[in-house]
């Protein structure tokens, strides 16, 4: 509070300074440094084509990271997002290829599958009161098992050409899915930062008991958040299937770690109560660019994981040191 008032009353330069001292500010500086270094290392990095291409890979993780930010702010976690994505994708392929549903209807099945998976998580966590980590650890295995069981580990392929529009097509110069993502980022940001529902999410994460006593429908908020997470996993599954034109039961294995890493790197406290959509998106952009840039400069694919782990720990460590001072 004190820094805000000081920033408001003092001159322009110090307002800039205090903005940079927030987690988002630090991340933005890190991002600028990374872009400069990587563009010096590889001349293929800072090109419009490369960057726009990156948004295709970025979108699926980002779709999952949006609700994950809200869930972690509320003091929860959702480990099952990767499995929900795979299950939804498998249902898309299954209902189209084996049940013979028209493709648009299969996409609806895909979205519904995600929403149902999320609603089951939400019911377990909000109403049965299973701790989120355990509930979603169990459903991580269950939904992945559904993916393998329903598909019998066979992949569906041969989607019609127009289906590729959502994952490979373009609107003007922009990849289709990137535009969808931008709309959803804005919507989620407004939901979290500008609505009563968003304030409820923060309140629950700060002090659940106090939130309950002040009349916030804690159960309903939690149920909504996890269902939303499932729905977004369904949407990500649809775009993923359209991009890679095949549905596989082992899709998105381990993706939950990328998503959580982005959210935490973005400054959302793993204990709940604080965080922002902008921070998460900055975190995710940093991870994506770092991975892509390192690949372009000749670092082997798996080694990029090392760098991301280091960046994650370093970011939180630096943040801790800055705050303690």
């Amino acid at each position: 509070m004190t820094t805000e008032t000081r920033a408001a009353t003092s001159a322009q330069p110090s307002r800039l300074l205090s903005a940079l001292r927030t987690q988002e500010g630090v991340l933005f500086l890190v991002l600028v440094v990374i872009v400069i270094v990587l563009s010096l290392l590889s001349d293929r990095f800072l090109t419009v084509n490369n960057l726009l291409n990156q948004t295709r890979l970025f979108t699926e993780t980002a779709l999952l990271a949006l609700p994950m930010t809200l869930i972690i702010i509320s003091g929860g976690i959702d480990l099952s997002v990767g499995s929900m994505l795979a299950w939804s994708a498998v249902m898309l392929g299954f209902s189209w290829q084996l049940l013979g549903l028209p493709l648009p209807l299969a996409v609806v099945v895909c979205l519904l599958t995600g929403a149902i998976g999320g609603a089951i998580n939400g019911a377990l966590i909000a109403y049965v009161r299973v701790p989120p980590l355990i509930a979603t650890l169990a459903t991580l295995a269950i939904y992945r098992g559904f993916s393998f069981g329903i598909s019998q580990a066979r992949s569906a392929r041969g989607f019609p050409e127009e289906f590729a529009f959502w994952g490979q097509g373009q609107v003007g110069p922009f990849p289709t899915q990137f535009l969808i993502l931008v709309v959803l980022i804005v919507a989620m940001h407004l939901l979290l930062a500008r609505t009563g529902f968003g304030r409820w999410v923060y309140a629950i994460g700060n002090n659940e008991l106090a939130a309950r006593y002040s009349g916030i429908p804690v159960e309903r908020v939690k149920f909504t958040l996890y269902t939303l997470s499932g729905l977004m996993a369904g949407l990500a599954a649809f775009i993923f299937t359209s991009r890679v034109t095949t549905t596989r039961a082992d899709a998105a294995t381990g993706l939950e770690l990328d998503v959580i890493a982005a959210v935490v790197l973005g400054g959302t406290s793993i204990f709940g109560g604080s965080g922002s959509i902008i921070g998460t998106m900055l975190g995710l952009v940093i991870i994506t660019l770092l991975r892509n840039g390192l690949l372009l400069t000749g670092v082997k694919g798996d080694a990029t994981f090392m760098v991301i782990g280091l960046v994650l720990i370093a970011a939180v460590l630096i943040n801790n040191l800055v705050r303690r001072r």
């Binding site: 770690l257 959580i260 890493a261 935490v264 793993i270 204990f271 082997k300 798996d302 080694a303 990029t304 994981f305 090392m306 760098v307 991301i308 782990g309 280091l310 994650l312 720990i313 939180v316 460590l317 801790n320």
Partner: peptide, 19 residues
């Protein structure tokens, strides 16, 4: 640093280094 963050980072670092 919260344990879940530390060990999430270590998971990536060690796996990447190993490969």
């Amino acid at each position: 640093i919260p344990a879940i963050v530390v060990t999430l980072g270590m998971l990536s670092i060690l796996r990447g280094g190993l490969i």
